[in-house]
Amino acid sequence: MTVIEPVQKYEDIPAGDLLVTVMRKRQAEFRLVQICCAVVNNQYEVIYSFADDESYELTNIRVMVGLNETIPSICDSYPYANYYENEMSEMFGLKIEMIDGDYHGKFYRIEATEPFLSKKAKEERAVEAEEIRKAAEEAANMPAPEKDAPDPASKPEIKVIKKEGGGE
């Protein structure tokens, strides 16, 4: 019997590159094996594993997500990822948006909410949320910029070239 030596790779990517990486894996006909969530250093560490069924190669993509950040769902590429994502958001409180088939916390019929998130992490998350809220308030209360300086957020002027109406 020929023994196939499986290769395992770990890749670290930022949360912004998640969708593109996953789409590439889908193009290469990889199978989504599992999505695992852990709380490490007051951050969510989410590992997406993809496998190639011919060579038994396993690629693990690691994404670090803050306790109050939101990551997009990969259900467009892998429709069956919704069970993993529902489980993660229910058990760990990880915020995932646009899940196709979102159970809104009712996938597991259990009474406890976010049972795998430790008390310490919950407190840390509340503290961070408070900080983010304060930062947002301060940004909203900032004074308006001066009138002389061109406002970089305004739209550029559209120059309209008037055409002579011929033959009226």
């Binding site: 159970y103 009712k106 996938f107 597991y108 019929r109 259990i110 049972p115």
Partner: peptide, 11 residues
């Protein structure tokens, strides 16, 4: 729907 026999063993 699942969760009727969830014991939280991973925890």
């Amino acid at each position: 729907n699942i969760g009727f026999i969830h014991r939280g063993l991973e925890g």
